[in-house]
């Protein structure tokens, strides 16, 4: 009888301990929060993050608009095609994170419009080809079909590269250097009319991994 009571008491204690441990661990867990981009004072990371892309895009757009390279003499918009932007870093990133912000800012400036008809990898929007294949189809009204000779050739091509270099400064510190390089080429004559490089240099613990 006494043995049974002791066994039940031990089980109760173990259960209580388990519940206490669960509560403690739940209390220690990092809360998930939504970051306010305007007031994000969190320490930077060694890897690339959204603030780096925003800074690089801001620097590039500021430089491009200030350079006058996209000022049309007749106050019209230039047409720009986006060529290949190489990710030469150790991280798996989509270079569109940079280029999309540059495109949006240039469109907003009223100086440049980006074409979806052509890119380094062929047609950027496959629907452009698809709707042209429908010419002559009896399923579609003739007056809604796309005529030939309606696409507009680009004036400029935007290309670039994101580079990374890792340097061990000492046993405890490493330096990670990122270079955002962009080039705007006049597609009529092949001249690079604007170039920009935004370096972002980070220094941190050797224990952090920048990929």
């Amino acid at each position: 009888m006494t043995f049974q009571i002791n066994a039940i008491s031990m089980k109760t204690r173990a259960l209580g301990l388990l519940m206490l441990l669960t509560l403690v661990l739940a209390g220690c867990a990092q809360r998930t929060v939504i970051v306010d981009r305007e007031a994000d004072d969190a320490d930077p990371t060694l890897a690339l993050e959204y603030r780096d892309f925003e800074f690089a895009a801001m620097d590039a757009v500021n430089s491009l608009l200030s350079s006058g390279a996209v000022d049309h003499p007749e106050n019209k918009r230039y047409v720009m095609a986006v060529s290949r932007v190489t990710n030469d870093t150790m991280q798996r990133i989509d270079t569109d994170q940079l280029i999309r912000q540059v495109r949006i800012a240039l469109l907003q400036s009223g100086k440049v419009i980006t074409t979806s008809a052509i890119s380094a990898d062929g047609v950027q929007d496959e629907l452009l080809d698809e709707v042209r294949r429908l010419r002559g189809s009896e399923e579609f009204r003739a007056d809604t079909q796309v005529e030939t000779g309606t696409l507009i050739s680009p004036d400029f091509g935007l290309t670039g590269k994101i580079m990374q270099r890792n340097i061990d400064r000492d046993r405890r510190t490493q330096q990670v250097e990122y270079y955002f390089q962009l080039v705007l080429t006049d597609l009529r004559n092949g001249l690079a009319v604007w170039e920009n490089e935004t370096p972002i240099i980070k220094r941190g613990s050797n224990r952090s991994v920048a990929w």
């Binding site: 925003e54 800074f55 895009a57 801001m58 912000q101 949006i104 800012a105 907003q108």
Partner: peptide
């Protein structure tokens, strides 16, 4: 609002 309004 624009990328040109970010804190630098």
């Amino acid at each position: 609002d624009s990328v040109l309004s970010r804190k630098t």
